[in-house]
Design a protein around this nucleic acid. Structure first.
Lengths: 210, 210
DNA sequence: GTCTATAGAAGGATAGAC
DNA sequence: GTCTATCCTTCTATAGAC
């Protein structure tokens, strides 16, 4: 299917996604979306009624995409160490293809925290923890990961993956001045992050034994 | 000095800071700033000419504040391990008092990446690295921190500190559902992050010896 | 310096022809 | 379904009185 053949509604949705992700809800302009879609402004309202509706459609699609990327980590039947490597490889690869998504999502959640609360309402966190515990009982004990400190651990892992994209302007500028390449940095990060986390866990393990 | 006694320009600047940090450049309204300052909209233009000027003044102050917080880490005459502890303690404490600053800064840098490039132009990164190297020559060698992988290490450390504030809506919602307290999580993070990083380094050290 | 009034432009949304 | 024309509101910015 070529660009020309795309149905109008689909084309609008794609253009809207581009503009909203780039500029955010407040910075996005309906005119800009219409121009990119190659149609008239009023058609936007015909299909999506208001800017708010259009934004919500886009946001829900993107947030869904993002959360889906976390799911396989729980399903895969791998040792914890391999899961960590798998996560960084896949998650960073996804964001390399969609580098603006993390900032966009986190930012819009600041503007409207209710949105995330509703999403999380539907998740059974206790069940999630039970699943993890069942899959990795011994490893969790060995590495001293408990239900109490799992937020610390999870946010550490997530942060190592996401932070480079959120702070990209800063990091890229510094690296440019050092003569290094940001894309190369991202590529290396998949392994560096996994090694770093696993090292921290293993040292923890060594301390436990004493 | 009470709220009433404050000079107009100062009051405007403070109100503008509040509104810009909360809503971002695109979401901020001059009317909102004027209301908080308890003055008329046109006075904003009298003192700062345009919204852009006012925003720049606010942003530069805030970015300066943020960068100043990193400086002591280089000055303090402490072993690397203690510096890492010092950094997390101080940096997280600062953000606890100003929880919206990280998102605000990073976000506005996405909107205008030139801003950060100019700031970094003025920094002599090679000199910075020489300073660090001189202070911690043996430790860097021991922990296998090189000029080549220092971006990986620095962004890991920065991310562990900053990410909780950038992803606050997500993290806080999940923790709320788990019955945990986000503020307590932040308090604990100062030590958890330091331990985590130091453990990773020490494990690296152990591997080096083999 | 501070206010009122208003200009001038932009943006979201709708009416109505085709 | 798609377009043109236009309404209405909001927002930045300025003019001018005090």
């Amino acid at each position: 299917m070529t660009e020309e053949d795309k149905q109008t509604e689909e084309k609008i949705f794609e253009s809207a996604t581009e503009v909203f992700v780039e500029k955010g809800m407040d910075g996005a302009r309906m005119q800009d979306i219409a121009n990119r879609a190659g149609i008239n402004k009023s058609l936007l309202h015909y299909y999506y009624r208001t800017k708010d509706h259009l934004f919500n459609a886009v946001f829900e699609m993107i947030a869904g995409q993002m959360f889906k990327k976390f799911a396989p980590v729980l399903d895969e039947n791998l040792p914890l160490e391999e899961k960590i490597r798998f996560f960084f490889r896949e998650h960073i690869a996804f964001m390399q293809k969609n580098p603006r998504l993390p900032s966009f999502i986190l930012n819009e959640l600041h503007r409207n925290p209710e949105r995330i609360r509703k999403l999380i309402q539907n998740i059974d966190i206790n069940k999630l923890w039970t699943t993890i515990e069942a899959q990795h009982k011994e490893e969790l004990k060995r590495y001293n990961i408990t239900k109490e400190n799992i937020p610390q651990f999870m946010t550490t892992v997530a942060g190592m993956s996401v932070f480079p994209f959120v702070a990209r302007p800063v990091i890229a500028s510094i690296m440019e001045k050092m003569g290094y390449d940001f894309d190369n940095y991202l590529e290396e990060r998949k392994e560096y992050a996994a090694d770093f986390v696993i090292n921290a866990l293993k040292k923890q393990e060594a301390s436990n034994k004493m």
